[in-house]
Amino acid sequence: MMRFEGKVALVTGGNGGIGKAIAQRFASEGARVFTAQRSAEDEFEGVVADFSDPKAAEDTISNIITKAGRLDILVNNAGMMQEANIEDMSLEDWDRNLRVNLTAPFLLIKAALPYLRESKGSIVNIGSIEGLGANPLHAAYCATKAGLHGLTRAVAIDHGKDGIRCNAVAPGWIDTKLNNDFIDSMPDPDAFRQDIGTIHPIGRTGQTKEIAALVAFLAAEESGFITGQIYTADGGRMAKLSLP
């Protein structure tokens, strides 16, 4: 099924993990795919961008418009996670988390709006279940992902009249390099891997291709009546109460 033939998609943070799976899904369905991240990317048309720099967003969109002449889909996937409690986090680190996880999506949307208005395009933001709940030492990550969920709703309300839809996906535990590195940092990684599936009613952690499938659905015309929504994809983890 070639749902995105003739369309141009931008996926930030598209050189690994969830971002790469999303980019591959769009390409497999006919889209011309650009990715934007700090390092060069060879599989797609890569744009080198450091989203801690506020100028990167406008430069990225301008680069794509120069090369492709249009933009139909924007996926804000690039992000960072820093573990620290509030007392130990510096204002500089807090600001950097905000710039990468929340200000960059805002600026990318702002720069992309004229072109998405022309194409009646779709925005999909990659939030997190940590925008709904919290893990220890993730104050900045939780705050920025909750903010991204709020931004999603606001864009949907303000720009629905322009034919632009904006939704978000809130993944749970997905098998990415970031999460695998976290497991490897545990005192007993094998025991952690064995136990992690038990917190999910579905009995396992998620795969990047499953998030990519949901993002593709939200970007496609078949979801044309869906906007302003936050889709949790977590194997039922957030729905499960702890034992009494």
Rank of each mutant, 00 (worst) to 15 (best):
Q24D: 13
Q37C: 13
M1E: 12
I86Y: 05
V11C: 06
A134N: 09
V169H: 00
A216R: 01
D95P: 03
I174E: 02
P189V: 09
G16R: 15
K55G: 05
A156V: 03
T60P: 01
A21Y: 01
D93R: 08
I211S: 02
T208Y: 11
R204M: 03
A233G: 05
G224M: 07
A111G: 14
T198D: 11
L178N: 07
M89C: 10
N180I: 01
K145W: 09
D59A: 08
F106Y: 06
A36N: 10
M186V: 10
S90Q: 03
H159K: 13
A154P: 12
L91A: 10
G69H: 04
L151I: 03
M186S: 15
A170D: 06
C166R: 01
K67G: 08
G203F: 10
D175N: 10
T176F: 03
I202P: 00
K7I: 08
N15T: 13
I65F: 05
I199P: 08
A220K: 05
K67V: 09
A233M: 11
V47G: 00
I199G: 07
K161V: 14
Q37G: 09
E210P: 00
L116S: 05
V47R: 08
A212S: 08
Q24F: 13
A111F: 07
D162N: 05
G6N: 11
I226W: 14
I86H: 02
F44W: 14
D158F: 09
T12D: 03
G197S: 07
A191E: 04
E221W: 03
V215L: 05
L113E: 04
D188C: 11
D53S: 07
E58D: 06
I65C: 12
A27G: 05
A168H: 00
D188R: 14
